[in-house]
Amino acid sequence: MTSDTPGGARSRGLLSRLRRARSSPRSKARRRLGAAVRLLAALTLAGGAYTVFAPDLQAQETSQLSAAAQEGKALYDTSCVTCHGRNAQGVEGRGPSLIGVGAASVEFQVSTGRMPLARQEAQAERKPPVFTDDQIQQLAQYVQELGGGPQLPEGENLHRGGDPVEGGRLFRINCSSCHSFGGGGGALSSGKFAPSLRPATDRQIYAAMLTGPQNMPVFGDNQLRPEQKADIIAYVQEVLAKDRDPGGFNLGRLGPSTEGVAVFLIGIVALVFAALWIAGKS
């Protein structure tokens, strides 16, 4: 949990160290963030002790929040407040305002481990989540009650009744340009990228379409109706993820580039060894 201490960061290799050296003004923020994460771990162990640390400056507002949102606020004030600011209004140069992003956005960012952010870079990456499911729901509830915004439907399986045929058509016209035809992701400009869809859950895919995290465009409910979203999720989960490739090992579904590597590494290498043996003396 506390891997983001300076010691942990040091072990990350040359690249990250270079990046650290270049971005010294940010390191303070990161240190503070790291401290926050460490703190959180301690709090989770202690169980309930967080109330001691929770600042009661907004006591009046707190009273208007639901119970879940109040717990979420406590989590927020220990883990998120550094970058997103008090009352989620955002901090210039660190983190955007969360007013109006909605529970869907929080659930996407936190459940995929993208938030809390480990370090500032071109794009947040998927990591093991820091919070439990219940804590994520509390955080989401808090942000939702603060400023409203898009929300996810209930349930884990959001593609029940979705039509993979229609989903495939929608996927190819809306999603494959960035996430690639096999859902493996692809590169965007200057170090940004569209992530692989393989580890994503139904709720995460739904939330990503609804809220457009980072550089992903928003696909609101008017553009892709909820049943169309279910179609797309059905295609991603049922066809891309669960349907085994009929033609053998799929080479990562990366298209002709890995096929070209394979023909040299398997075909040519095997046949050159065969030729060496055939023409050999013994």
Partner: peptide
């Protein structure tokens, strides 16, 4: 179109 659109090697 798909990301990673390549011709054969």
């Amino acid at each position: 179109v798909s990301a990673a659109s390549q011709p054969d090697w």
